[in-house]
Design a protein around this nucleic acid. Structure first.
Lengths: 206, 206
DNA sequence: ACCTGAACACCGTTCAAGT
DNA sequence: ACCTGAACACCGTTCAAGT
C-alpha cells in the first residue's frame, strides 16, 4: 500500500500523484483509501518515512571516527534522495517524525553523544548536516520545477547567459563544467565536518 | 500584479494560492491572467524573483572581509525567507533564474572572486551557503506541512516523546529549548565559513 | 461491519463569444 | 486587438447506498 504509493510518486512525482491513481493501482475506489488514511497528506507522510527506512546507517559499534560516521550518514541520506528525487520536496515540507525518521535521528544523536558531543552541539550538528544534504539534493533540478532532467539543463542555461552581463557566473559555470555532483556535494559536507571539529574541541563563542 | 500575487502567497501559502484568487484580487477573470503568464507556475516564478529582489546585499566596495560579506548575504537571504516563509517551498522547487536571482548570484560570485577565490571554489561556496540557508529555513515548520506555526509545535512534539525510547532526542531537545533560532542558524553558517577559510588558504585535496 | 459508486465543491486551463 | 463568462477535464474528499 505504502510501497505502491512510493512507486507511483517515484514514477510521476508528488505533484502528479493522485489519490485516484493509487486507488486504481490497488484495484479499489478512492473512498476505500480514506478508511486507512485521513487524506492525501497522511499518505505522503508514510511514503516519506518508508523511504527513510531504506537508509543504511553505519553500525554504531564500528571503529569509525565520528567524522566518518557523520559523512556516512550524510551519504546514506543523499544516496537515498538521489534514488528517490521526487521525495525531496516532501522532506522539505515536513519534518520527518515517522518511526524511521525518529529512529534515524536518535541513532545519530547517540553516536555523536558517545563521541563527546554535548547534547545541544550534537543536535545542531545533525540539523546542519541534514539541512545541507536536503538543500543540496533539492537544488538538483533545472530552472522551472517541471523540468524532467534538471542538472544538465541548468548547466546549459548558465552557459547560455551573456558573458558580458554575468561574467562571474559564466566563469564559474565553465570551471564547474566537469565537476561531478558527488564531488561538489562532498566539498560542502567536508566544510561542515571540519567546522564541527573546531567547535567540538574548543568552547563555542557565538 | 506580481506584488498582489506575492501578498496572496504570503497570506495563504503556495498550496492554497489559486489563480481564481489572484484574478478576483485584481478585479478581473482568470482568463485575463493567461494573457500575461503562461500559467500558474510562471506566476510563481515571478513571485520568487520579486522576493529575491528584496534582499539587501552589502555594498561590494565596503571594507568588509569576505567572511563578513558572505555572512551578510546569508543573513539577507535568511531574513527575507523568514519574512516570506511561504516562499521557501518555491525556492526549493526551482533554481531562481529570474533577473534578481541571477543578479544576486553574479554579485556574490564577483565578491568572492575579488577576494581571491578561484571561480570553481567561489561557485561551490555560494551553492553550499545558499543550500544551507534554504534548507535551514525550510525545516522551520512543524510535523505535517499544514501546521500553522511550526517551530514551537515541533519542540513540543519532541518533548512529548517517550524518553526511554528516544533518550538522545529528548536530551537534545531539552538542551536546545532556549536556543534562539537565529543562534542555531549562525552556528551552522559559522561552520561553513570556517571550513571555507581553510580551503581558500590551502590547496584542496578531495 | 466493511466497502464503494456517485456526487460535491473545488482546481488549472481553454475558447467561443463579446466589446 | 483585447478581454472574459462559461465551460472542460480534472482534483481531494464525502456519504448514502450497497454487500
Amino acid at each position: 500500500m505504502v510501497a505502491t504509493a512510493l512507486r507511483l510518486v517515484d514514477d510521476v512525482g508528488v505533484q502528479a500523484f493522485t489519490v485516484r491513481m493509487l486507488a486504481d493501482a490497488l484495484g479499489s475506489g478512492t473512498a476505500t483509501l480514506y478508511r486507512h488514511f485521513t487524506g492525501r497528506d497522511e499518505i505522503l507522510v508514510y511514503v516519506v518515512d518508508h523511504v527513510l527506512g531504506e537508509i543504511t546507517t553505519p553500525a554504531p559499534d564500528g571503529g569509525a571516527s565520528w567524522q566518518e560516521s557523520l559523512v556516512a550518514v550524510a551519504d546514506g541520506l543523499y544516496g537515498t534522495l538521489r534514488r528517490h528525487p521526487h521525495i525531496v520536496p516532501l522532506l522539505i515540507a515536513q519534518v520527518p517524525v515517522g518511526p524511521n525518521g525518529l529512529a534515524q535521528r536518535e541513532r545519530v544523536l547517540r553516536l555523536l553523544a558517545e563521541r563527546g558531543f554535548p547534547a545541544d552541539l550534537g543536535a545542531r550538528a545533525f540539523t546542519a548536516v541534514t539541512h545541507y544534504v536536503i538543500g543540496f539534493a533539492a537544488q538538483q533540478h533545472g530552472p522551472g520545477s517541471a523540468d524532467p532532467d534538471g542538472a544538465p539543463a541548468l548547466a546549459a542555461f548558465y552557459r547560455g547567459l551573456d558573458p558580458a552581463a554575468f561574467p562571474s557566473i559564466t566563469a564559474a559555470s565553465q570551471a564547474l563544467t566537469d565537476t561531478p555532483l558527488e564531488e561538489e556535494f562532498h566539498f560542502g559536507l567536508g566544510l561542515l565536518v571540519r567546522g564541527l571539529e573546531l567547535l567540538r574541541d574548543e568552547p563555542p563563542q557565538g
